[in-house]
Design a binder for these strands. Sequence first.
DNA 1: CTGAAAGCGCTTACAG
DNA 2: CTGAAAGCGCTTACAG
Lengths: 359, 359
Amino acid sequence: MANFGKAGVAATITDVAEQSGVSIKTVSRVINQESGVHPATREHVLKVVAALKYRPKLSARSLAGARSFLIGLLYYDPSAAFVGDVQQGATLRCREAGYHLVVESLHNDAPDLAQQVARMVSALQPDGMILTPPLCDNPAVLKALRENQTPCVLMSPARDVKGMPSVRMDDTKAAEEMTTLLIGLGHERIAFINGPPDQAASGLRYQGYVRAMQSHGLGVDPAYVCSGDFVFQSGVDAAQLLLGRRVRPTAVFAGNDDMALGVLAAATRLGLAVPSQLAIAGFDDSPAARLVWPALTTVRQPKNEMARVAVEMLIAVNRSDAPEVPEDKLHRVLSHELVVRDSTSSPASKLGSRAKRAT
Amino acid sequence: MANFGKAGVAATITDVAEQSGVSIKTVSRVINQESGVHPATREHVLKVVAALKYRPKLSARSLAGARSFLIGLLYYDPSAAFVGDVQQGATLRCREAGYHLVVESLHNDAPDLAQQVARMVSALQPDGMILTPPLCDNPAVLKALRENQTPCVLMSPARDVKGMPSVRMDDTKAAEEMTTLLIGLGHERIAFINGPPDQAASGLRYQGYVRAMQSHGLGVDPAYVCSGDFVFQSGVDAAQLLLGRRVRPTAVFAGNDDMALGVLAAATRLGLAVPSQLAIAGFDDSPAARLVWPALTTVRQPKNEMARVAVEMLIAVNRSDAPEVPEDKLHRVLSHELVVRDSTSSPASKLGSRAKRAT
DNA sequence: CTGAAAGCGCTTACAG
DNA sequence: CTGAAAGCGCTTACAG
């Protein structure tokens, strides 16, 4: 005899079927929201499901069917502010859809990376994978996933791969907007601190800076362009270089927040007033951006939203009626946001004109 | 006929058994490292496993057996620096043991929290759950988990629950050590910024401060004790209060890093030199602690290690031969570390004596 | 609109 | 030390 709500023993589909007086197939139809079930039957089954607190077990569904209701999130650098928001958006969207998020931290340069990925997907059989940088640009990872026929979505990949879904923001446009904002405040000597050449975002952001400077007739002075590596200390170093120039820049736009914080630290140490003597802007809206004084002006990536869209795409792919997605719908670009805080203002030399504009 | 390594089709236990000339039961024994298999047989099976790239599917193991090889991590505040490190330690330990980490972000005050948890565990059937604050102190969560008979480990709970495993550090001792460090540097007027009363860490850390002050005959001046809420702004506010006193403190020990960063911001804005005019110490070693100038002296929680231990405990519980764990072994306390950076030094008034000590 | 049968890939409980 | 049988709780493919 079946278990009708005994304490400590979870109900199964058989319990629900017996209690409802229908076959397990019909219960299955109701659970999976399939069409072609008499409304009255459906309602009745649903009542029994609630009464018995029946919850289908993922392992059984996964073993019998084509879906595991598991989505994987692969990341490399856990300290990256990026991951936190992405994960948050992903878990919430997953829960809404009855999916669960499995996370795995991998070393981008591990020699057995492909094997680790292969092992994971064949054990877990996830319905899809979300890849964050730099893993989304790692050929070994992509190959392993392809071989195991696991659908995936690339988050902010260096370049789009044909046929492979991706979600990103427009780094170049955002950097152009931030630079234009500084120009609008009256800055002309705007320095830029670039990220490492092997990260796609570096080049894209630099391009945006260049584009804005040129389109406003300011040109790019090589003396005002430094190279960094997206790490705090490189921002400090770059700032020391820049602030040691005979003619100082009045604003520094750093390729990411960590470097911008380095600039802020260096400026503070030198006794420069930020933003009046030196305006500083970053990129990422990392948690630390609001934990300093003055709070950092920066670019907010729609990480949460990007993650939700990624989950969405993966769920869609797994539906039996999934239509072919045309190439141009495969690569989503979400809109960013400039977050103007206290580290930017007009240069001291133009404070008068700024006051005028404010009134 | 079975599949001997056909492309695109994953090998099953049957494939391995046929190819090895043994029964699936024997393959199962080898996979699960059970004793009582002839060494030669084991070796041969292992070779076939490798050749066929056989990887047992979690869903099948979970459905047939008592283990799911899934461990859940429940957290509330994703921005909490806490979660990142915990997760990192947990995923790595999980991978080593062939487990996988499923993460879920929950609102601590959601009305249907218990149901959300119940739904998750009955669908996923995880072998265990790791609960981070404040969820580990939430009765609704604990009740739901108990009812579903899911083993769990509490990370830094407000108080230990009898029979329920926990992992923590000694907040009081760490705070006492940090205060003693400041006293050793020559500080006597040491202010403390407390966290919110509903968070266990607040009281524990405050106690450590009090203990150190009293044991050094300094006593606790109520004028130097502020209440905050573990958020940046409350650190700014407290600092403004403290630095407005006729006789200023020479050091501020904040109950966490975010508030310490608020103190740093306020001090910087007021033109106070840190650390010479004001020493600042925090607690947590959050990522931002090293992204400011001067870099923050703080307490490093062994989060990574705590997570590994938590996973360890959960895996142990699930082994069939799991022995009863005595109550005193159920609550692990791991050792912390004082991270002395640049935001602390002797007070300006005693710099001479400090220089003496340094030589 | 509904159901009976087979089977997913493993582990359990038992037998030898 | 090894294996045959049953079964975990679902979905699939088919029939009516």
